[in-house]
Design a protein around this nucleic acid. Structure first.
Lengths: 110, 110
DNA sequence: ATTGAATACATTGGTAACTTAGGTATGTGT
DNA sequence: ACACATACCTAAGTTACCAATGTATTCAAT
């Protein structure tokens, strides 16, 4: 078992948290920021991120605005009002989750 | 997204931790203990647990011994020496994971 | 000037780790 | 008698990811 598997299911709350503290971000920026923030511990793959962003946009959690920087396209995402609430809720769940995991955090007994 | 999805990938380290602090346990006991410990926050399904135990046994992480209590069978699992090491490693990964998640734990900015 | 890496978007196919639903059987409470 | 708890198990479907690939532009290095 690869430790990366622990992060399964955490991508959405992480992205929501990032967007909750950054006004707006584009996809590639998110991957770089996460890698940087976690010092490489977590590397979001684009194959996971882009479909997630599209889904969240479709659900009304995010809005997107295209922008051109030079000749290159960027798609900026930001939280909608619904997304703000979703983020808060996801944060609560994340904290409950962490608290629960801590219950099992014992050095050993043997 | 159901918050249960956060636990995806955490079942193995949790089971290893439990067995690391309990000498030996049987499957059903594990489900009850986890539910009790987490006050219902985490309910391991048998469809997830039994295949996991079988896999870990096959990998040499656990050994099993059958026992009869009255007319009913119990299959007790315990960590092998390999399993002890696996548990320690899983615990480290779990702690790193928690530390990484904490990086995103900010109330908000908005 | 060309090559590789970085930037930036995206999709497709495969898979691991679950959930849901079921099956078998014994014991216990009402 | 019936439901619920105990105790094992499996099979089929779902989900959320990863790996690989594709397109195109920009920049640094040789």
């Amino acid at each position: 078992m690869n430790k990366q598997s622990l992060y399964k299911g955490c991508l959405e709350p992480i992205v929501l948290q990032l967007l909750g503290s950054h006004n707006r971000m584009y996809g590639y920026e998110i991957t770089v920021k996460v890698k940087e923030l976690t010092k490489g511990a977590l590397q979001i793959t684009e194959g996971a991120l882009y479909p997630l962003l599209h889904r969240l946009e479709g659900e009304g959690v995010l809005t997107a605005e295209m922008e051109h920087v030079g000749n290159r396209m960027r798609k900026y995402y930001r939280l909608t009002p619904v997304g703000q609430a979703t983020r808060k809720n996801a944060l609560n769940e994340l904290n409950d989750f962490i608290a629960t995991l801590q219950l099992f955090n014992k050095p050993a007994i043997s």
